[in-house]
Design a protein around this nucleic acid. Structure first.
Lengths: 187, 187
DNA sequence: TAGGCTGATGACAGTAACTGACATCAAGCA
DNA sequence: TGCTTGATGTCAGTTACTGTCATCAGCCTA
């Protein structure tokens, strides 16, 4: 056994979500989170840049998944198709963690500070997707537009999915929403 | 003459932008901004919710313009057309304030905290646009999708416009970008 | 096996964003 | 003339976040 309990980072994440749910984000201090995790405030800030970031460690996983899917798509596929497929693949991950996603989303959407951070993560997702598209040969501004369109679809699809228990699976909602976007934009 | 110099709010905004440009956002304290404006830190926080917000008072003007344009559009117009026209109209405002917009954008894009806030304002713009579309009879999720598509177009168009001195006017860049989106999504 | 190095943590002091409570005082109104 | 109002100042307090130094188990190396 090591000198310290393992998984400090994970313990902090769990403690934070727990407390944010129980008593709200603003009413929770970082010192409390650290204490529940058996650590100190200073250690919290060694693992996370700020009080918000502790809820967003999963976003880089999503981003890697997205970029990987884009890079793996066969050359010559239209960018919008590449993007929608990639988001559908990433959506699979969330589908598998639906209970967690729901719990987390309830906290995030209740606090402007956290919504802000989520938007920043989405913007990062969009930038990364656009870069992956450019690497695959799509020029600007088409790459950015396809990436932004993908994020728009994801946003709307996610909201429909999260608010509709027992509804269709997220990847399917994403594909369906993409078709709707196509109709809306074409009109 | 009143008891205090008038336009406290405007003075704070100008002082803040000035200092953010000169020495950077993080290196500027709210106390310094207030001092330059001839006020105290406490008064700053009576006018603006936080250190970021002082750069974003213009966003509600943009939002009002956008919503007004949507509401004024003739019934029966396809939502995407309504949205693009509305953003083009809003773009006219920025075109007229290009020098200011450029200066301000240089500060905002240099600091993650400020980019975050800008994304929140964009999200608010999207929500307000979607609501205006719904009021005009467009059902969900079409209203949200059209609004998100509009924001996507605006984002890409704004970036192209700001980075291209002597290029076409913002409203024209917006319309052109909208056509590109249509092509990208249709593909 | 002794001794030094490393990396995660604790302890502690400090800065600055933000808030609540109360005081001030010119202008307008009764 | 006196009351109310609204924008401001003052001051004390909380908490997010940072810099710095100390600690110490496990590992590596001589």
């Amino acid at each position: 056994m090591g000198r310290w309990e393992p998984n400090a980072r994970t313990r902090l994440e769990q403690a934070a979500l727990e407390l944010y749910v129980e008593r709200g984000y603003e009413q929770t201090t970082v010192a409390e989170i650290a204490k529940v995790a058996g650590l100190t405030e200073r250690t919290f800030f060694r693992h996370f840049a700020d009080k918000r970031e502790v809820l967003f460690s999963g976003s880089h996983v999503l981003q890697d998944l997205l970029v990987g899917a884009i890079s793996a798509s066969p050359a010559g596929t239209p960018p919008i198709e590449v993007i929608v497929d990639a988001f559908a693949a990433a959506g699979e991950l969330l589908e598998e963690r639906r209970a967690f996603a729901e719990r987390r989303q309830q906290v995030v959407s209740a606090h402007a500070e956290l919504r802000e951070r989520e938007l920043l993560k989405m913007a990062a997702l969009s930038s990364a997707a656009a870069e992956a598209l450019r690497d695959a040969g799509t020029p600007e501004p088409h790459a950015s537009l396809a990436a932004e369109a993908g994020v728009a679809v994801f946003r709307v699809a996610f909201e429909r999915w999260i608010g509709n228990q027992d509804g269709p699976r997220l990847p399917d909602v994403i594909r369906e929403t993409a078709q709707l976007l196509q109709a809306v934009v074409a009109a």
